[in-house]
Design a protein around this nucleic acid. Structure first.
Lengths: 110, 110
DNA sequence: TTGAGAGTTCGCAAATATGCGAATACATTC
DNA sequence: GAATGTATTCGCATATTTGCGAACTCTCAA
């Protein structure tokens, strides 16, 4: 995921300070990356929101840090729904998958 | 997917008539199954909405009808995002995956 | 400098999804 | 009944993801 910034809501801020305080390199890519959220990025954001390290999430999901890292890699496209569900469960969330028509009705608000 | 009903929008109606006209068994489970949409069901609905048979979709996705059938099976949980993307593309849509917090903010409207 | 924590990348074994044909069932039409 | 179109299930080969450790970078703190 090449370090990600936040600057979103206050909650995110707080958690971020917990892991990024005084770590310039990590605050680098900040502003960008809010657009076109890939699944990888969403996993990353969900994890940070929970204030967990890859290692912690790995334990919660019953896998290893390297696997979590792979799943958060921006160029990784091989996600399975079962893994997404495992992650969601560990982070007290649920996975929602939907097909959005390319043309026609406007995209879902939020 | 054990046959599914529709009775939703007019567009769906039209397409359904195309495949279900005079086929009682298929109109059986109708009313139900609108709730708790599984990924399998969403694939099924998307396909019907496009007015395609499993065979047709299989061709469009470059696979076989049996595979499509498996993906639409209600008890199938092994979906991959790559396959969902292939299906979405074939049906002129895109896949959106999101993690929804179990507690906290209300669910996304539509 | 040394040590610890977080993240990344590599390689390979193991688990799982896909690819695909064949056989089966059901409904419609002839 | 026979033929056609659609959907389902089974089995197996192939492809892909996950599981996992090792080695490496970078940052912060003694």
């Amino acid at each position: 995921m090449v370090r990600k910034p936040t600057r979103k809501t206050d909650a995110v801020e707080i958690i971020h300070r917990r892991h990024y305080r005084g770590r310039p390199k990590r605050l680098a890519g900040l502003e960008q990356a809010r657009v076109s959220a890939s699944v990888s990025r969403r996993i990353y954001e969900l994890r940070l929101r929970a204030g967990m390290s890859q290692k912690q999430l790995a334990r919660a999901v019953d896998t290893t840090p390297s696997t979590i890292c792979r799943l958060e890699s921006d160029d990784y496209e091989g996600h399975s729904l079962s893994m997404l569900r495992r992650i969601a469960t560990a982070l007290n969330a649920r996975v929602d998958v939907r097909f959005i028509p390319q043309t026609g009705r406007p995209p879902t608000s939020a």
